[in-house]
C-alpha cells in the first residue's frame, strides 16, 4: 500500500469534528455508535465490545496525543476507518500520559490483508511532527482530508 492510498479510506460520514464524550469508555462508545448510525455495522455493541477488550490488553494510545483503537470483526464488510477529534483531549492511558486529541478507529474483517499494512502506514504518517501539529488544528473533514492528501 502506498502512503497516498491512506486518504482513500477516510470518508466525511465517519469523521467527528468534536467528540461529546470525555472519558475513554465514552469515546469508544460514541465512535462505535457512529459506525452503526452510518450502517457500517449492524450493532454498536459488536465493535464497542472488541475495542474495549483490546484496550484491556493495553492502551492503543501511541503517544503525542494520538490513539488508534483497532480490531478485526466479521461485523464490517471491508476495512473501515473513522477519525474523531477532541480538542480538550481525553485521558486514554497513553504511555506518555498525554491526553489524546485525535482518534483513528480502524476496523477490518478477519480476512482483510490490508489491515496490518494500513495500520503501519497510518502510524508512519501521523508520526510526522508537522502533520501531527496541523491535525490538531483541523476543524472540518475537508481540512483533514487535505492534510492527509498532502502527507502522501
Amino acid at each position: 500500500m502506498k502512503q497516498s492510498e491512506l486518504q482513500s479510506y477516510f470518508t466525511p460520514d465517519l469523521f467527528i469534528p468534536e467528540l461529546k464524550a470525555s472519558t475513554k469508555d465514552g469515546v469508544l462508545k460514541e465512535m462505535a455508535a457512529l459506525l452503526e448510525a452510518q450502517k457500517r455495522v449492524f450493532r454498536t455493541a459488536l465493535v464497542y465490545d472488541l475495542l474495549h477488550k483490546r484496550e484491556g490488553l493495553g492502551s492503543t494510545g501511541i503517544g503525542g496525543g494520538i490513539a488508534i483503537p483497532h480490531c478485526r470483526t466479521i461485523a464490517v464488510e471491508k476495512l473501515t476507518v473513522l477519525c474523531a477529534l477532541k480538542r480538550g483531549g481525553v485521558d486514554f492511558g497513553s504511555p506518555d500520559k498525554k491526553p489524546v486529541k485525535i482518534f483513528f478507529v480502524v476496523v477490518a474483517p478477519p480476512q482483510d490483508v490490508t489491515y496490518l499494512v494500513f495500520l503501519g502506514k497510518l502510524v508512519e504518517a501521523v508520526n510526522d511532527k508537522g502533520l501531527k501539529r496541523a491535525l490538531f488544528e483541523v476543524k472540518t473533514f475537508e481540512e483533514f482530508n487535505n492534510l492527509i492528501a498532502g502527507a502522501a
Binding site: G56, L57, T60, I62, I68, L116, G120, V123
Partner: peptide, 20 residues
C-alpha cells in the same frame, strides 16, 4: 508474530491475554 511486529512499530505493548 505479524501482529506483534505491527503493534511494536506502533509503540504498543500487549499484556493480560488470559483475560481474553
Amino acid at each position: 508474530k505479524d501482529v506483534k511486529n505491527v503493534e511494536k512499530k506502533m509503540g504498543l505493548k500487549i499484556k493480560g491475554e488470559e483475560q481474553l
